[in-house]
Amino acid sequence: MYAAFIRACAKPAGAALFLAVVFGVAFAAPSLFAAPAAPVAATTVDIAKFLYGPKEITVAPGTRIVWTNHDEIPHTVTAADKAFDSKALDTNDRFEHTFAAEGDYAYLCTVHPFMTGIVHVRKQ
């Protein structure tokens, strides 16, 4: 699952976008070219402009994550292995999922499969 995510992000533009999203949300500061992406501890993910923000998130086991779609277009939050699936989220619809076990959970929007994200669940 993780390998699939790495491949999806291997394109230079994808990597740049990824960094911009992670840093933009994590620090809201223009330090875009600092160190590699630090883990982000948060329980909300915003879907806006066809991006999951943050695209990559690290949480402790038992954390509930809430996704909210801010676009005028429906999106989904669907695990790559279908373990969770939001169904169609209309504008301002929310989806919650609690991550009990450690692991890497890659997910995508099934309507726009170029939209991908990943949840890392790690004991902290």
């Binding site: 699939a4 999806a8 790559a80 995508l108 099934t110 309507v111 499969p113 991908t116």
Partner: peptide, 8 residues
């Protein structure tokens, strides 16, 4: 047949 990061 949407797969992660690809076209249909």
């Amino acid at each position: 047949n949407f797969k992660m990061g690809t076209m249909t």
